[in-house]
Amino acid sequence: MNLPNLITLVRFVFIPLYLFVFFSDLPGHMYWAVGIILLAGLTDVLDGYLARKTKQITQLGIMLDPLADKLMMIAIFLSLLISGKISFWAAFAIFFRDFTMIVCSAIFHFRGKKTVPANIFGKLTTVLFYLTLFLLLFDLPNAETFLWSVIVLSYITSLIYMLQLKTVNGRMMQ
């Protein structure tokens, strides 16, 4: 287990911690929840940077990194749905996309197929989802409209990712 993968594993701990804080009665709990989200985002950047810098990119890391991202996003959007900050349909669109991506990636991995690291569109989508989260968490105007535009972008990004998977694995078959 290398350091970048260990940092990725720590990100999984932030998921229940975020949920506990979000739904707690702690003073300033929303600020603490945002702090946990930021910490998860920073460790995401750190593990990617370290993996590239030290040439420790592994298939395990390629699979776990987006899984940690997606599970954190699912937890956050679930909390927003339960608290009434987003509509059922917005949550459904996000959950459906993320669940499908997790299942497809797992199938590819366990069948011995290559997975591909996040591309620039995936990274941009993640950044925009984080921006959307802050708009939603603090009930800022037009937050749900912005959310829907990011959801559309996320589906386009997923299509690009699937095409990359097909290309990489198509080459492996030849």
Rank of each mutant, 00 (worst) to 15 (best):
G61L: 03
L159P: 03
H29C: 01
F88H: 12
P66V: 02
M173H: 11
I7T: 01
K53D: 04
A90M: 00
F77I: 09
A68C: 02
N169W: 08
I160N: 13
V103M: 06
I74S: 15
I7R: 01
G112W: 02
I151D: 15
T100S: 15
F146A: 15
Y18M: 01
S79P: 09
N5Y: 10
C104E: 13
D98H: 13
T54S: 10
F99W: 02
F14M: 08
V116P: 00
L71N: 06
P16E: 12
V103S: 06
I86Q: 04
G170N: 09
D69G: 05
E144N: 15
D47M: 04
Y161L: 04
T8F: 06
L78N: 08
S105V: 05
L3V: 12
M30E: 12
A51W: 01
A91K: 05
S24W: 07
I57E: 10
T145L: 14
Y161E: 05
R52C: 00
F146C: 10
W148H: 08
P4R: 08
F20S: 04
F138Y: 12
L124H: 08
S87R: 00
I62V: 13
W148E: 06
M30N: 12
D98A: 13
P27Q: 12
S24Y: 12
D65T: 05
V10L: 15
N169C: 09
L39N: 07
Y49V: 05
Y31M: 07
T100P: 01
Y49T: 06
L140A: 15
F88K: 07
M172Y: 10
F12R: 01
L147H: 11
F12I: 01
L26D: 05
L71E: 08
L135I: 11
L6W: 03
Q59N: 14
L80E: 04
F92D: 04
N142E: 11
I94T: 09
T8A: 04
I57R: 00
M72S: 08
T125V: 13
T125F: 11
Q174F: 07
A93N: 03
K85L: 14
M101H: 12
Q174K: 11
L19H: 03
D47N: 02
L165T: 10
V116M: 00
R97K: 12
S24T: 07
I82D: 01
Y161P: 08
G35D: 07
L19P: 02
L80T: 02
T100N: 10
T54R: 14
A90E: 09
L147R: 09
D69H: 00
A90T: 01
I160F: 13
Q174H: 08
K113A: 13
L135T: 11
L80A: 02
G41Q: 07
K123P: 06
F96M: 14
M173C: 02
G112P: 02
L6T: 05
M101L: 15
L136C: 13
L80V: 03
S87M: 04
K166P: 12
K113T: 05
L131C: 11
L3S: 03
A75V: 09
N142K: 02
L39G: 14
Q174T: 11
I74N: 13
